[in-house]
Nucleic acid binder design. Structure first.
Lengths: 112, 112
DNA sequence: TATTATGCCTCGCTATACAAGGTATCGCAA
DNA sequence: TTGCGATACCTTGTATAGCGAGGCATAATA
């Protein structure tokens, strides 16, 4: 589907925080999961996600921990991210913001 | 309401094209109209809109024409913009894109 | 005459998506 | 054991665009 960068911008942070609310995840997993859940509509790139994770961590919204992959899966060490209380608060705010924003745009687009 | 810049990004062009489909408008009018129609939720700035109009014109999506303000209103000359056929085609595509995008984001946010 | 609103514009700062490139580890097949 | 693909992480450079801040001109109004 390949959406233009201007659209993608605002969605990265809310989506990451929302996923991490479900359970801890590592970067590579997030990329694959987003692509899967959107049925390929959102094609996230590693070069986008990794810096975003670092920014969120620097801002105290998430924290990380290196862990081995479970024996059943194998593979190299993974950096698991979990959401912090501050990140949770942010998530709520950003989801509201997202819905307020899209509805404001709809209003103008529909000529209300 | 003051939405963050990352959210605003993707919405400028679709909104401008959509408004110009209704009728020709000038920049200052568009700023005020967007603010009004969104009930102040979208607070567009001139420093955002004017360059965007110039980019759209350079891309052939809109064209401009200087006209006097009608006697009833007064004021200085205005630069009216009208949408071109290419801009109309773009508009349709971008509105679809917008709705596809927001629905894809919703899917991930809701954990579908 | 001074102020306010209208109406246009540009410069500089900043943030960030993404392409491109790199490193390391593991499982598996030739 | 060597090679390869998948997994998993990272950084650098480029391009773009919102917006604060400033500026200019014109018209109505106080």
């Amino acid at each position: 589907m390949e959406f233009p960068e201007e659209l993608v911008r605002g969605s990265i942070v809310p989506i990451v925080l929302s996923l991490l609310r479900e359970r801890p995840m590592y970067g590579y997993e997030i990329v694959k999961l987003v692509n899967a859940r959107s049925n390929g509509a959102l094609e996230w790139k590693e070069g986008t996600l990794y810096p975003a994770l670092h920014r969120l961590q620097a801002a105290g919204k998430i924290k990380s921990q290196w862990r081995d992959a479970p024996d059943a899966e194998g593979g190299r060490k993974r950096k698991y991210y979990t959401i912090t209380p501050s990140g949770l608060a942010d998530l709520g705010q950003k989801v509201d913001e997202w819905s307020n924003f899209t509805s404001a745009v709809q209003k103008v687009l529909r000529g209300a």
